[in-house]
Design a protein around this nucleic acid. Sequence first.
DNA 1: AGAATAGTTTCCCATATGGCAAACTGATTC
DNA 2: GAATCAGTTTGCCATATGGGAAACTATTCT
Lengths: 118, 118
Amino acid sequence: MVRHMVNQQAALDSLFHALADPTRRAVVSRLLKGAAPVKQLSEPFEMGLPAFLKHLSVLEVSGLIRTEKHGRVRTCRVDAERLAAAEGWLSQQRAIWQGRADRLADFVESQNPPEQNA
Amino acid sequence: MVRHMVNQQAALDSLFHALADPTRRAVVSRLLKGAAPVKQLSEPFEMGLPAFLKHLSVLEVSGLIRTEKHGRVRTCRVDAERLAAAEGWLSQQRAIWQGRADRLADFVESQNPPEQNA
DNA sequence: AGAATAGTTTCCCATATGGCAAACTGATTC
DNA sequence: GAATCAGTTTGCCATATGGGAAACTATTCT
């Protein structure tokens, strides 16, 4: 099931890097509500198109979005599987911690009678 | 409930940036299994201590880890709440998309009789 | 055809990042 | 008190990143 760890690392690198910028997160957020062309996507932001295109490129390289051009307009849409991949790593890690936390909670509860939570 | 959006953005920036590096993810992963001192944490990696300390610093600034020094050894531990914060953004976004996907699924199902998935 | 539109490319700039080596501080051990 | 050990600081370097200006391409509108 786990195919070549190495590339998965690189995928996570570019995924998290793509999400580490407010402009790019806003674009993802916007695209989750529906596909849109580049110009329209760029309107809420103060930067010029070239700078904005770099952000789109980062998002596309990371796999978070896909784009296709018809005529002179390029339409962007989100690839939700990639978003799930990032979430997957996090929840996997949390599971590790939570496993410990649950065991700790079990231990604490086995020592003290349960009272109301603070 | 939502206290000053602006700082939340900055927090997400540094959170995702902290996670956008295999060394740092490995450290988080390791620390989720228990606290550890700097030297011991650094051993699996090829880089020198100064470089490694920079990674720890990025993790600490992001809030993903906390550290305290006793005598000459600095002990690092993970702050699971921050991990949850990153996961929170992602699952929140996914919820938006999933809401749409579910509605789309409902629509598709209302049009076609269910068959086996490809 | 000519003008406007949507992207794209190229070049440039300042700053951030990730790594190194070497010198240094403070705690512990011999 | 000398040596060692854990961590820190300081410079340095190459590359990556995020932004701009200007010139260019390819469509679409009039």
